[in-house]
Simulated scan of single mutants.
Amino acid sequence: MLNKLKDLIKEAGEQLMYFYNYKYKNITIQYKNNGSPVTNIDSIVNKFIMQKLYDIKPNIPILSEECLPEISICKKWEQYWLIDPLDGTKEFLQGIPEFSINICLVKHANPVLGLIYIPFYKILYYSYLGISWKEVYENKKKIYINKSSSCKNTYTIAVSRYHNIIKKYQYMKNIKSYFTLKMGSSWKFGLIAEGKVSYYPRLGNTGIWDTAAGEVIIKSSGGKILDLFNKKLDYSLNNSFINNGFHAFI
């Protein structure tokens, strides 16, 4: 199944790159209640991923950012796919190649299998059975990743390009010297898993589709991700699809 998922996410990435390279001119943009953009590209790639997931495991329900069911329906799910077909829509629209695709399998409210793909760079992070890997399709390299395997001389903090929250977060007052990396999408989780980034804070509420795949990859590589009260993120679908802010770290 993992090999099929890797092929699926790579194919979905090829679709995104087709649109990203401006071969597709009729991009329509709408805005959600929180002001974030969503395009018809999100919907097109979402349909492709959902159909492929049904082909792989037809009995597992799918929860996607782009077509949310009623929360009352989801409460009975013991397992489900959780996907974000285009994470980093702002970057995508501005021609910044950091956007990603997230796919995760959640069982009994715990993310157990996660994939994050950055199509422009053909980089895939994935984790299953407690082991995380990074594959770079351009040079056909497959690397076992663990945060302890990276030697860092600088404390690096990753933040969203559009939300400068470092000074607002109490934790940062204890760190005197650090380097700030501004970038979009779930790629930041992969860099945490590799040990290239030390810390990734986010203050605002976050959809579960934004964090689930990254959580599997980070935990399997020896890192941690918790909400701002240092509690586990909630994927139970009992009350909401949203968690409060979080911090990921090694």
Results as ranks from 00 to 15, higher is better:
residue 103 I to P: 14
residue 249 F to C: 07
residue 203 L to Y: 02
residue 138 E to Q: 09
residue 120 F to C: 04
residue 4 K to A: 14
residue 216 V to Q: 03
residue 220 S to Y: 13
residue 163 H to E: 14
residue 82 L to W: 13
residue 172 M to A: 14
residue 213 A to G: 12
residue 138 E to D: 06
residue 16 L to Q: 02
residue 126 Y to V: 12
residue 20 Y to P: 01
residue 81 W to L: 02
residue 160 S to N: 11
residue 3 N to H: 10
residue 46 N to V: 08
residue 243 N to D: 10
residue 15 Q to L: 15
residue 72 S to F: 07
residue 75 K to W: 01
residue 96 I to R: 07
residue 142 K to L: 14
residue 39 T to R: 00
residue 52 K to Y: 03
residue 228 L to Y: 04
residue 42 D to K: 01
residue 219 K to H: 06
residue 54 Y to C: 06
residue 183 M to Q: 13
residue 3 N to P: 01
residue 190 G to D: 05
residue 118 I to C: 07
residue 61 P to F: 09
residue 209 W to H: 13
residue 163 H to F: 13
residue 110 N to I: 15
residue 187 W to A: 15
residue 248 A to I: 03
residue 147 K to I: 09
residue 154 T to G: 00
residue 201 P to M: 08
residue 185 S to F: 11
residue 235 Y to Q: 05
residue 115 L to V: 05
residue 170 Q to L: 06
residue 243 N to L: 05
residue 88 G to I: 14
residue 30 Q to H: 10
residue 217 I to L: 05
residue 239 N to L: 10
residue 25 K to D: 14
residue 159 V to D: 03
residue 15 Q to F: 13
residue 101 I to F: 04
residue 75 K to N: 12
residue 14 E to D: 14
residue 137 Y to M: 05
residue 157 I to L: 06
residue 17 M to R: 03
residue 112 V to N: 04
residue 64 S to H: 10
residue 166 I to N: 12
residue 63 L to F: 07
residue 79 Q to I: 08
residue 33 N to S: 14
residue 156 T to G: 00
residue 97 P to E: 09
residue 86 L to K: 10
residue 112 V to A: 01
residue 53 L to Y: 06
residue 231 K to W: 00
residue 218 I to K: 08
residue 170 Q to I: 06
residue 25 K to A: 09
